[in-house]
Design a protein around this nucleic acid. Sequence first.
DNA 1: AGAAATTACTGACTCAGGTCAAGACACTTT
DNA 2: AAAGTGTCTTGACCTGAGTCAGTAATTTCT
Lengths: 247, 247
Amino acid sequence: MSENAVGWRRSLLQETRCQNCSLSSLCLPLALELEDMSQFDAIIRRRSPLKRGAVLFRQDDTFTSVYAVRSGSLKQVTTEGSGDDQLTNFYLPSELIGLDGIDGQTYPGSVIALETTTVCEIPFDRLDSLSEDLPELRTQLFRSMSKEMRDDRRMMRLLSRKTADQRLATFLAGLSDRFRRRGYSPYSFRLSMSRADIGNYLGLAVETVSRILSRFQQQALVSVSGREVHILDLETLLEVAEQESCR
Amino acid sequence: MSENAVGWRRSLLQETRCQNCSLSSLCLPLALELEDMSQFDAIIRRRSPLKRGAVLFRQDDTFTSVYAVRSGSLKQVTTEGSGDDQLTNFYLPSELIGLDGIDGQTYPGSVIALETTTVCEIPFDRLDSLSEDLPELRTQLFRSMSKEMRDDRRMMRLLSRKTADQRLATFLAGLSDRFRRRGYSPYSFRLSMSRADIGNYLGLAVETVSRILSRFQQQALVSVSGREVHILDLETLLEVAEQESCR
DNA sequence: AGAAATTACTGACTCAGGTCAAGACACTTT
DNA sequence: AAAGTGTCTTGACCTGAGTCAGTAATTTCT
């Protein structure tokens, strides 16, 4: 405990401010001047890291805060009726969690860490009132929500019109792009989620995910070993993802 | 032209203000005091009615305004690649259109009237700056967006987990509920959209929509004649909509 | 290190819902 | 009233992906 606690305390002091955060150009305060950013920074609560499987908040918990991912990744899971879970989102660094909880005062799904993960907690009432004084912050908040709606629409199209092949190609290409934007290799990354998670998210059976990943590998589009992914032919992958409902 | 124009001019004067609007308890300004509401009212532009099939705005048009439906109904259609449309939403009175255009500066889909329809145009830059002075308005705006995200998640669950029967039952029950909230009969209404629209929205072939509506009728859950719908057994319909993935 | 428990892969079989085709119905328009 | 056009319904057939079952490979625990 002692060693870790010290390490954590130190990193808290070192890079715990938005001003020093490597994600500041992607995250909520991206449009703020330095002095505004320190106002924003003041309302943020850093949280100690979550371990794999740890719950950030549970479905139906009272909504209080939104969270920005600092490192690691998480999934959102909504349980309706009994037993039948739906994985509605994966969150990567700089992305905002919990915006769908504003209406209704409770979170509509549980959010769970997929690996060791750190997040910044942003109490929503403080964020709301700060957005009164900082138009750029308000704009960015509107944009984040708007973007999420747009992404949701894309997901609906995927779920209602795309074949299993197209879904997986879209998923892999999408991850690749998200890694690229965050400065990681778009061609080589590790999946933090299980096949079951991917299947649940894409509306496919686990077996289908496995089968298609194997076929993509045969076709030399990707090379997969467990959760390690190498994208070999992004070009073709994107073609598969968007190809005409070719008959 | 003259008679209609006069009629329209008159109704403009009569009930063209939020203060008199029967939807004010459901619409964006729902939380505002009377004097705040008149501030809000001042930024709104009434539009002359759209006829069936008329386009409110087109995909990729520059984003300028959001719209509140005053009467009638509309659909949002997104075209990706070539030809392959996806119907992503139906809008009923009091609902807000265009919030997904804030990010990216263009509308992500075309919005088309399904019948004679009137909308209130709300220029977004004015709405944004007004939300600085009226916290209740800002809150309501956040809520509307949050609610839409929540609805989107529900739609994803529908598209990825529900059977065709469950989808149609959910759709009918949902419409019924939306009519009820707006003060119309939840048991008897007219569909403003075609079977093709319904199919597209629910991720089903037109034929499937037809077949299942027929079966629902046989099972005495509903009685359908063309676009006229009577819900005979809402209880069971809701059961079908949410039943366990019963094996 | 070895046992236990997840997690991932592959094959064989099934079925919900898509596709194709044809006819019925409901509207305008002349 | 006939003709034309789009929307809706019904039937026959087919296929993509789900289910079930068994095995292999990881990861976790002791």
